[in-house]
Amino acid sequence: MEAVEQAKHVWSKGTLKLSCIRTRGDVETPVIKTLDLVDTGYRRGGLLEEMVASSECPMSDQRGYKLIRLLKASAHDPDVKHILGLRGKV
């Protein structure tokens, strides 16, 4: 199966979809890792958007999984939201 690579990660009002590639042997398969923005309270903007925009696309499946896990684990820390430039209620 030949991989179809997306040119960018995709933001919507309720989600951030990271374009990833899963590699098994010599086969690369496109996968999407999704962060539910509503569930976490994150939104587009600030340092978070800059980090995503400057990240490789597509990224490895493992790195995408780790980033989503890290963001979910940090979602309820007001200091993290402040650092990422996500002030105020979302």
Rank of each mutant, 00 (worst) to 15 (best):
K8F: 15
E2S: 13
A7L: 11
D61L: 00
I68E: 07
D61S: 14
S19H: 13
V10M: 15
I68A: 02
A3I: 15
L47T: 07
P58T: 00
L86T: 12
D61I: 00
R69A: 11
L37H: 08
S19E: 15
K81H: 09
L84K: 01
K89I: 04
M51S: 12
V38R: 14
G45F: 06
T40P: 10
K13G: 10
D79G: 12
W11P: 04
H82D: 03
V38T: 09
P58C: 01
K33Y: 01
A7P: 02
R87V: 05
K8G: 01
S55H: 05
L37F: 10
T23M: 13
T40K: 11
G88R: 15
S54E: 03
A3D: 10
G85C: 05
L18C: 09
K33D: 12
I83R: 09
Q6T: 08
K13N: 09
T15C: 08
S54N: 11
L86M: 09
D79V: 15
G64R: 01
S54R: 07
K89P: 00
T40N: 05
K33W: 00
K13S: 08
G85Q: 13
V10I: 15
K66Y: 15
E28P: 00
D61E: 07
I32T: 11
V38H: 13
T34V: 14
S54C: 05
V80A: 10
V10N: 04
L16W: 13
G88I: 02
S60V: 02
K66R: 08
A53P: 00
R63P: 01
D79N: 07
I83V: 13
Y65T: 06
K81T: 05
T29R: 04
G41K: 14
R22H: 13
V52S: 10
G64K: 01
R43C: 02
R44N: 07
L86Q: 14
M51A: 06
W11K: 13
M59Y: 05
E2A: 07
K13I: 03
K66T: 08
A75P: 03
C57A: 09
K13M: 04
H76I: 00
A75D: 02
L70K: 03
L16V: 11
L70M: 07
S12P: 14
Y65A: 08
L48P: 03
G45Q: 05
D36K: 14
V38A: 06
A75C: 04
V10A: 04
V38Y: 12
R43L: 01
G85S: 08
Q62L: 12
D77V: 12
A73P: 04
D61P: 04
Y42P: 07
I32Y: 03
V80E: 00
L71T: 01
Q62N: 11
H76W: 09
S19F: 10
T23Q: 12
A73D: 06
E56C: 05
L70R: 07
L48Q: 03
K81W: 00
L35Q: 01
C57F: 14
V4W: 07
L18E: 09
L48W: 15
A75S: 09
E2Q: 13
E49S: 15
K72C: 03
T40Q: 07
L71C: 06
D79R: 15
K89F: 14
L86F: 03
G14C: 02
S19Y: 05
V27K: 11
I21S: 10
L67G: 06
P30W: 00
I32G: 01
R63L: 02
L86E: 05
D36P: 04
R63E: 03
S19C: 10
A53E: 04
